[in-house]
């Protein structure tokens, strides 16, 4: 972003990568897939790089409002400094904070989840699926992230994007507003689970496996981690892949050779 600004340019969108997308090895693959999609669709975009900092979501949900608001103040100063208007992100937790919680603190942006942006690219003809897409006819089940679905009412975008793959979209017993959590939210990702009979992610993954899917599609890096772990727990890694929708699209649209930014 700093380089573009120095060159006197303003990108159309800012890609907010998020902490998982920046540091977690598995989530970085999702980040790269999103970047490929942005490049292939010739979207003018930038990332903040070192200037991006945690939105403060896990701190806020764990009760540390001070830390959250410090992070918010810093990020809003950065975003406003660059005159950012439109943000896309691959993380529903960042999406929720940027969209719903920053405006009151002075950060007003149009915020899109990557599946919403991908849908827009497809609708505008900027992104096309290759013929004979690798997912044609495959059994795909989609796990709704709480902070995208129930929390922000977006159930359609991820499903419409999956349907572009010509795959068989299977709904889980509990989906959309009734979807079960993966177990990562509310800062659970960063602590041991409390004592119980079983783990939330195992329970949810087993429900996904009832559909006998070939792919469990996710739209959140934390869900991805939790469900991947659940699939391992069920000894199904050889049969079932856990992939973010961005990765599915990047593969289907044959973007693998598209250079990174």
């Amino acid at each position: 972003m700093a380089e573009l600004t120095a060159a006197g340019q303003t990108p159309d969108v800012l890609f907010w990568v998020g902490c998982a997308g920046s540091f977690d090895d598995r989530a970085k693959r999702i980040t790269k897939a999103i970047a490929r999609i942005l490049n292939a669709s010739e979207t003018s975009f930038a990332v903040l790089g070192q200037e991006e900092s945690c939105t403060g979501d896990p701190a806020k949900r764990a009760g540390n409002e001070f830390l959250y608001q410090m992070q918010a103040a810093q990020n809003i100063a950065t975003l406003n400094g660059y005159g950012i208007k439109r943000i896309i992100t691959g993380c529903p937790h960042c999406f929720n904070v940027l969209k719903n919680e920053y405006p009151e603190l002075g950060g007003n942006y149009e915020v899109l989840h990557h599946t919403q942006f991908i849908r827009e690219l497809i609708e505008n003809g900027k992104l096309r699926m290759a013929d004979g897409a690798p997912f044609k006819g495959k059994r795909i089940t989609f796990h709704d992230p709480c902070y995208l679905g129930r929390g922000n009412g977006e159930y359609l975008a991820p499903r419409e994007v999956i349907q572009k793959l010509d795959a068989e979209l299977l709904e889980m017993r509990r989906c959309k507003q009734n979807a079960m959590c993966c177990g990562a939210g509310g800062a659970q990702m960063f602590k041991e689970a409390e004592k119980g009979d079983t783990e939330v992610n195992h329970e949810r993954t087993n429900e996904a496996l009832e559909n006998k899917p070939e792919v469990i599609a996710t739209g959140c890096p934390f869900c991805n981690t939790m469900i991947t772990d659940g699939v391992k727990n069920a000894n199904k890694e050889s049969e079932v892949e856990v992939k973010d929708i961005a990765e599915l699209i990047a593969e289907a649209a044959d973007l693998l050779d598209t250079p990174a930014p």
Binding site: V17, G21, F23, K28, G49, Q50, A260
Partner: peptide, 16 residues
């Protein structure tokens, strides 16, 4: 570090 994990902030853009 500006992230919930102990990674240096400077590595944030490394994936590029």
């Amino acid at each position: 570090n500006g992230a919930p994990w102990a990674f240096p902030a400077g590595d944030r853009g490394k994936w590029t």
